[in-house]
Structure formats: C-alpha cells, structure tokens
C-alpha cells in the first residue's frame, strides 16, 4: 500500500466534493461580479478613492496598487476577505472530518482496523487538501481572468503574474489545511477540531487585518499565513515579482512541516 491511499482519497473526494467545489467556485464568482461592476466602479474612481484609503488597505490595496485600477480590482478574487477566509476554510473541511470527526463518531476505528496505516491516513488527507488548495487557487485565477474579460480590461491583466498568484493562493490554502490537520489530529471530535480551527482562522485573520490597516504594524502579517499572500505587493509594474515565489516557498515549507507534525502526532497517539 502506497503512502497515499487512493481508495481513501476517492472516498474523501466523494464525501467533500460538493462543499469543496462550492468553496472553490466562490472566488471565481467574486471575480465575475467584480467584472460586472467594474465599468461603473471605475467611473466613480476619482471621487471614491480619496474617501476609501482605509478601505483600500482593508481590501489589500497598497502604495503600489490602487484597487480601483483594473489590475487592482481583479486581484480581488485573491485577497478579498471572503476569499481569504475561504482559502483557509477549504482545507479545514476534510481535516475536521478526518481524523477528528470520525474519532468522535466511531468511524476511525473501522478505518484503522483495516491495513490502512495511521501515517497513510494523514498523508492522504494532506494530499487531498493540496488538491483543494489547487482547486480554489484555480477558482480565483479563473475568476480574475473571467472578470477582466467581462469588463473589457483583459489587456491590463498580467496573466503570468496572476498564475503565480494562483499558486500562492493554493499554497496559502494548503498551509491553512495543514494547520487544521494538526488541530484535527490532536482533537477528540469534530466540534473540538472545528472550534479550535475557527479560533485560529479568524484570530489570525484579525491579526492580518491589523497588519494591513496599521502602517507601523505591517510586520504582524508575517505572524500569520495570510501575510504570505500579498497580491498588491507582488503584481504590476511596481510590484516585487519575486515576492510571490518567496511566499510560496515559505508557505509550502511550513505546510510540509505541519503535515509531518500531524503524521507523527497521529502515529504516536495512545488512542486512535
């Protein structure tokens, strides 16, 4: 039996395909909505921009990127607060269900009484989370391109840079999934895992918001996974093109460490 169990992977897909697909589609829908309202929004740009400086920072704008510009508006699927929360939540869906949810329900005993190894179970959930991360990243990417196409602003979109952003978003999602998996491995049941994950997802989200709004507190962003997805600082002519790649490496390295932690913790648990 391989490290990732394909039968369990298929079971996870079957079980979570609807909720995961809904989450993955949400940033895409967001991008399309931005595409629909952008032509109106850009007409009021000059009037609104001075009033919404704080709002711009809240939504991820920076000195490099005006969110009322085409480039800025179509980074929304990658950095709108709803999208950020969904990046975090999508990987937590399978993690809270397995192992914690099945441990509380009793289904984990049935699974682990088979030849399935504990580390294989964790690796399979982790592998599934990476698929979900890729799906939601693709959702955001598709949303940005579709929205830009609908608004007739296609030419302003650096497709290659957005592709890197997609990978960055996928890595962020995988990282949050890995956090949820560590929580799940230590939790006795689904509600405990969900509660702890919720606290981390929203607690760190508030820290990230603080890092965006408080100029001197930008460093706070480095304390949270959210801080390693900064579209406004990494796209466009003023952006740091290498930033997204650095963030991807940091997020994936952290994810890998968390996945190893989760697998070791599950293997050494006294009670399955």
């Amino acid at each position: 039996m391989g490290f990732v169990n394909r039968h369990l992977f298929g079971f996870l897909w079957r079980r979570h395909r609807l909720s995961a697909s809904t989450c993955a589609l949400a940033p895409c829908v967001l991008g399309v909505l931005v595409g629909l309202i952008y032509p109106t929004l850009s007409g009021q740009r000059e009037a609104a921009k001075s009033l919404l400086k704080i709002g711009q920072r809240f939504f991820g704008g920076s000195q490099h990127l005006d969110l009322f510009s085409a480039l800025g508006a179509f980074t929304m699927p990658f950095q709108h607060p709803v999208a950020l929360i969904l990046f975090a939540v999508i990987g937590a869906i399978p993690a809270t269900a397995l192992p914690a949810g099945e441990r509380g329900r009793g289904g984990l005993d049935l699974l682990l009484a088979t030849p399935l190894e504990r580390r294989s179970l964790v690796a399979t959930v982790g592998c599934f989370q990476s698929l979900l991360g890729f799906m939601i990243g693709m959702g955001a990417y598709a949303g940005a391109l579709l929205g830009a196409g609908l608004a007739g602003e296609w030419v302003h979109i650096p497709v290659g840079q957005f592709l890197v952003l997609m990978l960055n978003a996928a890595a962020l999602s995988f990282c949050w999934g890995s956090v949820a998996l560590v929580v799940s491995v230590h939790a006795s049941d689904r509600s405990t895992a969900m509660r702890s994950t919720f606290i981390l997802v929203f607690g760190f989200f508030l820290v990230d918001i603080a890092s965006r709004l408080w100029r001197e507190g930008r460093w706070l962003g480095n304390l949270t996974p959210y801080g390693f997805l900064r579209p406004a600082d990494s796209v466009g002519p003023m952006g740091d093109a290498g930033l997204a790649w650095r963030n991807i490496v940091i997020l994936l390295t952290t994810s890998l460490a968390l996945q190893i932690w989760a697998a070791k913790a599950e293997v050494t648990r006294a009670t399955a």
Partner: peptide
Amino acid sequence: FLPGDLDLFPS
C-alpha cells in the same frame, strides 16, 4: 473486525 459501537459512513 466488528466494533461494538458500529458507525458506518451514512452517505
């Protein structure tokens, strides 16, 4: 193995 508290996957 048949567990005492059998919880199959309802879906």
